[in-house]
Design a binder for these strands. Structure first.
Lengths: 208, 208
DNA sequence: TGTTGTGAATCTCTTCACAGCT
DNA sequence: AGCTGTGAAGAGATTCACAACA
């Protein structure tokens, strides 16, 4: 088991777990690499390699034990103590994220939202307490938040990122259409919706 | 200039263009690969390679002509006749996308939205006409829509994708947390917010 | 002198192919 | 007989390093 696991592999493991959790609810006890691969849209060799990387082993003729595999992925990916997430910017996109994530993974939850709009502060939106921007550092420290989701306009994104990092956040998901720059070792995941649309348009065209 | 250009390169070109367009407004006439690279968060060699791939050439001591480079990227990526986009699912996420894209790129616009909710149909939301799901095929054909953005719940996503593809769409952006399967040559771009959050949480932890 | 354009080297990720196991 | 686990090969993407040039 290599000490470092690639970004791509982590992404696929997250997907495998979600698919496996669904299968488990339907009563699937064992699964072959080929089946999981076709659900995930990858090759069977890729699935076996990914699972090998986290140190789990299947059974050469029954395949992988669904429940055990889900647990192994969790052991590998999740912080046993849980991780807290903050969301900054409660616009349409922010609300969509809050609605989507609430109660989805017990060990990873959005515990605080922040916005400039006084009408939103102090309220509970989609089950999540909304604070004013001024309270950001205090709440991040108090709630031991390690991941920040940035859904503010482009011109505010870098400033918000700086404040998050200064307050101790080490993982950022950036939905603003500008690349962020983080000084210290911080994982930044840029999700650029503009680029996605332009890419899809380009390949839609070259697909013939 | 290679006949096929990678997904990654197209993504970066889209970003370069956005950055360059901003610089152009501020009056930057020429730019070196090093400056563009640092704005985009990549290496200078990467920028030069990407630009080489689209067949544009800079000047060995002034660098690249900003306006010409923007134009070259457009010549390479954009359909001269324009491309129309449909958005399916006008929830929080759908509204966020509509609000964000309206009027941003003249040659690539969301011309129709679709939703099941009768209260939304027939109205104009964020400047975009909203139709009922029953009208999907007719509108896609009539408006010559080639790209679809799926922002519906997971259990409806594959069905929506099938209908889009049958109506002639060749590029899909999928925000539902399930991998989509497209039968014929269609470019599918899965944007999985769950996976992004789990990835960011994992790397936030290993970043120490 | 300082930058671009690019072949070659390097690095990273994926797939092949088959030994080993049940 | 059929599947997993994995070394080795292959593909693809990035970076190096330097010739060519203004």
């Amino acid at each position: 088991m290599p000490h470092t696991i690639s970004d791509r592999t982590i992404g696929r493991l997250s997907l495998y777990r979600r698919l496996l959790t669904g299968l488990l609810r339907e009563g699937t006890r064992f699964i072959h690499s080929q089946e999981l691969a076709s659900l995930a849209g990858v090759t069977a060799a890729q699935v076996r390699r990914d699972i090998m990387n986290i140190g789990y082993s299947g059974n050469p003729n029954r395949g992988y034990d669904t429940a055990e595999l889900v647990r192994s992925i969790g052991d590998f990916m999740d912080d046993p103590a849980g991780q807290q997430v903050a969301l900054i910017g409660v616009g349409n996109l922010g609300r969509a994220m809050l609605a989507y994530f609430q109660g989805r993974r017990p060990r990873l939850s959005i515990v605080a939202a922040f916005d400039n709009d006084p009408a939103k502060c102090g309220r509970v939106i989609q089950g999540c307490r909304c604070y004013s921007m001024g309270e950001l550092e205090d709440v991040v420290r108090r709630e031991r938040i390690t991941v920040g989701v940035i859904t503010v306009p482009a011109n505010e994104a870098q400033r918000v990122a700086n404040r998050l990092v200064a307050a101790g956040v080490t993982g950022i998901i950036n939905y603003a259409p500008v690349p962020l720059w983080a000084p210290v070792p911080v994982h930044v995941e840029d999700i650029d919706m503009t680029t996605s649309l332009e890419k899809a348009a380009y390949f839609a065209r070259t697909m013939h």
